[in-house]
Design a protein around this nucleic acid. Structure first.
Length: 506
RNA sequence: GGGCCAGUAGCUCAGUGGUAGAGCAACGCCCUUUUAAGGCGUGGGUCGAAGGUUCAAGUCCUUCCUGGCUCACCA
C-alpha cells in the first residue's frame, strides 16, 4: 500500500490483531433493524420497551473512559451515540472495542437508553467489526466558546483535497452531503412532473458520429473496431426530435453533456441537463412547464418558493414575467434597437468594447448588446423571449415578425438557466439554416452547428409542431442549494491528475 | 491564456536567512456516564518539485507542478 505512515501502520497492526482473535474484519453482511433516523423516530417506544435493536455505522467519535466507551456512529441519516461497557459485553467484544478507530464501520446489538447527561444512546450488548479502516479519518471537532460562537477545530476544508477525496468531504461535512440529497430530490421532482404530464423517459446516444444541437466545441474520440471518429454529445436535442418524428409525442431525457471549453464557476466540461419535447405545443406552453418545474423543485429542496442566493432573495413563484429581447434592451439600456440602423448598433457595441467575430450580422449584434446590457440585471426569474433569427438555426420563425424566432431563455441571478423553442419543423428551411451555419463556420465562427443529413432526413419525414426545452441542471442545483461554484454541486468534478499519479500511471 | 494568492506532520495552522513547531489525531499507561472528556509519557517531516544565491534557505531568486480567486474565452 502507498503512503504508509505511523498511523496506517498502527491500524494495520490492529487489523492483524482482529484476525488473530479469529474475527473477520471484513464480513459479508450485517442484519440491521434500524437506521439512525428510525431509532430517533421511535425513541419513546424504544426507551419504554427496551426491546433489542441492531444498528450500524461509521465511528466518527471515540471516547474510551477505562472500561466504558462512548462512540458516535454515523449512517446516511445522521449520528447516534453507542455506549459499550466492559460489564455488559463479552471480554472478546471489549478487546475489539479497545482497538477501534475513528473511521471503522461497526454493527451493534443492544437496546436504547439515555445516559446520565441525557443523550439518547444504544446500550451495546454485542458488536461486530464491519470494516476496518486502515487510513485515519480527519476528525473535525467543534465547541461553543464563551461568546456562544461555534468554533470548529481541524475543519476539513481545503478545496483541492475536498474534491479529490470527496468521500471524506461527504463523511465530514454534512452541508456537502445535504447538497447531494437536495440534488436528488430536485431531479426526482422534475422526473415526477414530466411523468405526470404523460412524458416518456428515453435514452439517446452519448457517442455521436455527428454532434449538434448547441453552439459548442465537442470532445472527440475514436472507435477502434469501426475505425471512426465519434463525438461526445454537446446536446441531445436532435435525437429527441427524431423521437418526435417517430411519434413519441412527449419525451424527456436527463443527460450528461460534454463541451470542450473553458472551466469556471458556472462552466464544467461535463454537465447535466434535461431536455423535453412536446408535440403540438409551442414555446408559450413550454414556458408554463418550465416555471412549474422550477417552482416545484424549489419547494422540494427548500420547502418554499423563495430562496436566498448569496444573500439575494429570489422567488420562483410561477408565473414569471416575460420580456422580449427588444423590450429588455429598451428597459436596461434605454435603446430602441428595432428602429436603429446597423451603424448605430455598431456604435453602441463599440462604446461597450464588444467585438464581433466573423461576418457582421444585425441579429447577432443585437444579441451581444442584450448580453452586455441586460443579463446582469436579470436576478429574479424572467423569461427573455423572441430572439433575433440569427441566434439559432433550430428554432421556428416568429409568427408575427420574420426577423425573430420563437425562442425563450429563462434568466435567474443573471444566469441563463435554460433554452427553449417552438421547434423548427420546416425541412427546407432547416436545411437552409444548417447550410448557413457551415458558411458561418468557414467565416470564422468556431462554434457553429455541423451538417447532419440523418437529422434532416428525419425532419423531411415530417415532424409535428413541437415545443422543446433544455434546462441546465447544475446551475439549477447551484441556485436551489445556494452553492457558489458548479464543482460544489457535482460529486466528482474534473481535476488534473496530481504529479505522483501521473508518474504512477506510466 | 493573463493577473493575484496558496502549498510545512493524518487534519488545522504558526514559523519573516541561524538546531523544523503547536493543537487535535497516532502510540503506551491510568480512568464505568463522556460530549473538543481528562491526566502522565512517547513517536511522527522529501517544508509541492527542480535548480540557483549564501558560511547557512521552510524563509531570498528562477523555472515547473497542483489548486483557489479573477479577467479573457465560453452557455
Amino acid at each position: 500500500m502507498k503512503d504508509k505512515n505511523d498511523q496506517v501502520v498502527a491500524r494495520l497492526n490492529k487489523l492483524e490483531r482482529i484476525r488473530e482473535m479469529g474475527l473477520n474484519p471484513y464480513p459479508h453482511k450485517f442484519e440491521l433493524c434500524h437506521d439512525s433516523a428510525a431509532l430517533l423516530a421511535e425513541k419513546d417506544k424504544l426507551l419504554e420497551s427496551e426491546e433489542s435493536i441492531s444498528f450500524a455505522g461509521r465511528i466518527v467519535r471515540y471516547n474510551r473512559k477505562g472500561k466504558m466507551c462512548f462512540m458516535h456512529l454515523k449512517d446516511q441519516h445522521g449520528r447516534l451515540q453507542v455506549v459499550a461497557a466492559a460489564s455488559l459485553v463479552s471480554p472478546e467484544d471489549y478487546e475489539v472495542v479497545k482497538i477501534l478507530d475513528i473511521g471503522d464501520w461497526i454493527g451493534v446489538r443492544g437496546s436504547m437508553f439515555t445516559t446520565r447527561k441525557g443523550e439518547y444512546s444504544v446500550k451495546v450488548l454485542g458488536l461486530e467489526m464491519l470494516s476496518k479502516a486502515v487510513r485515519p479519518l480527519p476528525i473535525p471537532k467543534e465547541k461553543i466558546d464563551e461568546q456562544g460562537n461555534r468554533v470548529i477545530f481541524d475543519e476539513f476544508k481545503d478545496v483541492e483535497t475536498r474534491y479529490r477525496q470527496r468521500y471524506l468531504d461527504l463523511v465530514l461535512n454534512d452541508d456537502v452531503r445535504d447538497v447531494f440529497y437536495k440534488r436528488s430530490r430536485i431531479v426526482q421532482t422534475i422526473r415526477e412532473y414530466l411523468l405526470a404530464q404523460n412524458y416518456l423517459e428515453v435514452e439517446t446516444p452519448t457517442l455521436q458520429p455527428v454532434y449538434g444541437g448547441a453552439n459548442a466545441r465537442p470532445f472527440s474520440t475514436h472507435h477502434n473496431a469501426a475505425d471512426m471518429t465519434l463525438y461526445l454529445r454537446v446536446a441531445n436535442e436532435l435525437y429527441l426530435k427524431r423521437c418526435i418524428v417517430g411519434g413519441l409525442d412527449r419525451v424527456f431525457e436527463f443527460t450528461k453533456n460534454f463541451r470542450n471549453e473553458g472551466m469556471d464557476r458556472t462552466h464544467s466540461p461535463e454537465f447535466s441537463s434535461i431536455e423535453f419535447y412536446e408535440a403540438y405545443a409551442d414555446y408559450n406552453d413550454m414556458m408554463v412547464h418550465f416555471e412549474n418545474i422550477w417552482e416545484k423543485a424549489c419547494v422540494a429542496a427548500n420547502g418554499s418558493t423563495k430562496i436566498e442566493y448569496q444573500s439575494q432573495e429570489i422567488d420562483f413563484k410561477a408565473p414569471w414575467p416575460r420580456l422580449t429581447v427588444y423590450e429588455a434592451i429598451k428597459k436596461y439600456a434605454d435603446l430602441e434597437v428595432e428602429s436603429m440602423n446597423d451603424d448605430e448598433i455598431r456604435a453602441e457595441l463599440d462604446k461597450r468594447n464588444v467585438e464581433l467575430e466573423g461576418e457582421w450580422m444585425r441579429g447577432r449584434a443585437i444579441l451581444e448588446l442584450f448580453e452586455v446590457t441586460c443579463e446582469h440585471h436579470l436576478i429574479q426569474p424572467t423569461f427573455i423571449i423572441d430572439f433575433p433569427k440569427e441566434s439559432t438555426p433550430l428554432c421556428k420563425e416568429h409568427r408575427e415578425n420574420p426577423d425573430l424566432v420563437e425562442q425563450f431563455e429563462p434568466y435567474v441571478n443573471g444566469w441563463e438557466v435554460g433554452n427553449a423553442y417552438s421547434e423548427l419543423n420546416d425541412p427546407l428551411r432547416q436545411r437552409e439554416l444548417l447550410e448557413e451555419q457551415l458558411e458561418r463556420g468557414r467565416g470564422g465562427e468556431d462554434e457553429t452547428h455541423p451538417m447532419d443529413e440523418n437529422f434532416l432526413h428525419a425532419i423531411e419525414c415530417g415532424m409535428p409542431p413541437t415545443g422543446g426545452v433544455g434546462i441546465g441542471i447544475d446551475r439549477m442545483i447551484m441556485l436551489l442549494t445556494n452553492q457558489q461554484t458548479i464543482r460544489d454541486v457535482q460529486l466528482f468534478p474534473l481535476m488534473k491528475p496530481e504529479h505522483s499519479e501521473t508518474s504512477a500511471a506510466e
